[in-house]
Amino acid sequence: MPRLGAVSLLVRDYEEAIAFFVGKLDFVLDDDIDQGTKRWVRVTPRGGDTSLILARASTPEQVARIGDQAGGRIWLFLETDDFDRDHAAFSAAGVRFRESPRDEPYGKVAVFEDLYGNGWDLIQYKDAP
Rank of each mutant, 00 (worst) to 15 (best):
P2L: 15
G5C: 09
A6L: 15
V7G: 11
S8W: 12
S8A: 14
L9R: 14
V11P: 10
V11Y: 14
D13W: 11
D13T: 09
D13G: 13
Y14F: 13
Y14L: 10
E16W: 04
E16P: 01
E16L: 13
A19M: 12
F20V: 13
F21Y: 15
F21G: 08
F21S: 07
V22Y: 10
V22Q: 03
K24V: 11
K24D: 04
K24W: 06
L25I: 07
F27L: 09
F27K: 04
L29R: 03
L29Y: 08
D31S: 00
D31E: 15
D31F: 12
D32H: 05
D32P: 00
I33F: 03
I33Y: 02
I33E: 06
D34I: 04
T37S: 07
T37M: 08
K38A: 12
K38L: 07
K38C: 01
R39K: 11
R39G: 02
W40Q: 05
W40I: 04
W40D: 03
V41H: 03
R42C: 04
V43M: 10
V43E: 06
T44M: 10
T44L: 12
T44E: 01
T44K: 15
P45F: 11
R46P: 00
R46H: 03
G47N: 12
G48M: 12
D49W: 11
T50L: 12
T50K: 04
S51M: 05
L52W: 11
L52E: 08
L54A: 06
L54I: 06
A57R: 06
S58T: 11
T59Q: 10
P60A: 08
E61Y: 10
E61T: 09
Q62T: 04
A64G: 00
A64L: 05
A64T: 05
I66K: 02
G67Q: 08
G67H: 08
D68G: 00
D68E: 06
Q69L: 12
G71C: 02
G71Y: 06
G71L: 09
R73L: 13
I74F: 05
I74N: 01
W75K: 01
L76I: 12
L76F: 14
F77K: 00
L78A: 03
E79H: 05
E79M: 09
D81Y: 05
D84Q: 08
D84S: 11
D84A: 15
D84T: 13
R85M: 08
D86P: 01
H87Q: 09
A88N: 03
A89Q: 05
F90A: 03
F90N: 06
F90S: 04
S91C: 06
A92N: 06
A93Q: 09
A93T: 03
G94H: 07
G94Y: 13
G94L: 14
F97R: 01
F97A: 12
F97M: 08
R98C: 10
R98N: 01
R102E: 13
R102S: 15
Y106P: 04
Y106D: 09
G107I: 15
K108Y: 14
K108E: 14
V109Y: 05
V109W: 07
A110V: 12
V111E: 12
E113W: 04
E113Y: 00
Y116S: 10
G117D: 08
G117H: 10
N118Q: 09
G119P: 00
L122G: 02
L122I: 06
L122Y: 04
I123F: 06
I123W: 02
I123K: 00
Q124G: 03
Q124P: 01
Y125R: 03
Y125A: 10
D127A: 15
